[in-house]
Design a protein around this nucleic acid. Structure first.
Lengths: 227, 227
DNA sequence: CAGAAGTGTTACAGATTTGTTAAATGTTTA
DNA sequence: TAAACATTTAACAAATCTGTAACACTTCTG
């Protein structure tokens, strides 16, 4: 669980509480107490999810929502709105202004956590699960370990990320370009042939004696986990 | 575990139950059945944490909260509010009035205990645990001592905090940034390489003859306790 | 079938990351 | 205040990882 959550909340106790609990869950947390600051920080840090308090000293939550949803770079980041009252009207406005979900204060943390996980599962499946298993292959994201047939196999950083990405959607074929973008990074300048080499290394690493190859090549398309 | 908890609760059975269970956990417990008395006792005894029932015969929980939060000497004592079910609005007021957390009655004791420990860990980490043991390594937070194979090893302050943090979730890999944030402090400006040096010293310190290394390096990711 | 295009694999130079030591600076304690 | 202890940074060696080129091999296309 390695998602980055941004908390916009001016009430210190609640902010502290949220930060503490979210970090305990393994999330990376950034926060801000006012709208202006939040806006610039969000654009800079690009979190995976935003918890947004409805009532803020300067900009209202609704305004922040609107700004964010009109900014191409951040408009896809899901927003969970936190409101003080169960006022239907606020809820409507909140959802209209682009918030993906909505929670009434005070809320129980487990309830919030459930919503967060649900949201992240939808938007960034890789961020939620700690252990992903496919056939006889297991990826433990917390311990950063990989097992094949219950035996640990050691991977280099790139190999790990590559497998970690491939296993989120087994059988799905990813192009070299997609893999470069997801595993290497957006603006990195690397030849697509490089992917091939790492696939080879990954194949060798997760190959236990005569076990199935597990990485499928799709000619002129890319690679997928499965075989 | 030597924290002092003050319980403000007018329902006798619940108070008894709380006292019994908390004492069994090793906490020192004081209590009061009405708000006036609670206020003066709290100022006198300065407990580490307050469990506050929302519904009291004389002063309401919210009033107590407000009084406490405006008194310099006790305003930093965390308050966990206990409310009856369905009093949504009350919870809002509770948090607004300064309570750090709240719990809806009826609650399970383990749940309450978890919240208490979480809260204390934040406010007064030394008061909470206990003893954490992982393999042949033992961290005694109260005595601030560390043992390997039942032999005490001496650590510097940073080394202790580092190990103390790592051991809370063995096998979990923490990035240097996470460690800096958790062990050094949020806005401290220190190079991430510093972590390496402390890890080295920690390794040397907890290394008894030919024992397992216990601290794993995950290249390009960070460190974890385990090996 | 021959050529073209796509892929697997290897080797290697260069880049990155980490372990460790030592020296400089800061902090506590007697 | 001096001595002891802690902390941070710099520096260098060692370990590991990475990207590319080169070549072999396979699959496709006409």
């Amino acid at each position: 669980m390695s998602a980055h959550i941004f908390v916009v909340e001016d009430e210190k106790p609640i902010q502290t509480l949220l930060r503490y609990n979210l970090e305990k869950e393994g999330f990376k947390v950034s926060s801000s107490e006012n709208g202006e600051e939040a806006l610039s920080l969000i654009k800079e840090k690009k979190p995976d999810l935003i918890l947004l308090d409805w009532m803020l000293p300067d900009l209202s939550g609704i305004k922040i929502c609107q700004y964010l949803k009109h900014d191409k770079k951040v408009k896809d980041i899901p927003i969970i709105m936190l409101t003080a009252k169960g006022e239907e009207e606020d809820k409507v406005k909140g959802l209209e202004s682009g918030a993906e979900d909505y929670l009434t204060k005070p809320f129980s943390f487990p309830e919030l956590l459930a919503r967060i996980k649900a949201m992240l599962r939808r938007v960034k499946p890789t961020a939620v699960n700690e252990e992903i298993i496919y056939l006889d292959l297991k990826v433990d994201r917390v311990a950063m370990k990989v097992y094949r047939q219950n035996k640990e196999v050691s991977l280099g950083p790139k190999e790990f990320k590559l497998l970690d990405f491939l296993i989120t959607q087994p059988k799905r074929v990813y192009s070299r370009e997609q893999l470069l973008e997801q595993v290497w990074g957006e603006d990195i300048n690397v030849e697509s042939r490089t992917v091939d080499v790492h696939i080879t290394r990954l194949r060798q690493a997760i190959n236990i004696d005569g076990s199935k190859p597990l990485i499928r090549t799709v000619r002129s398309a890319g690679y997928s986990l499965e075989n």
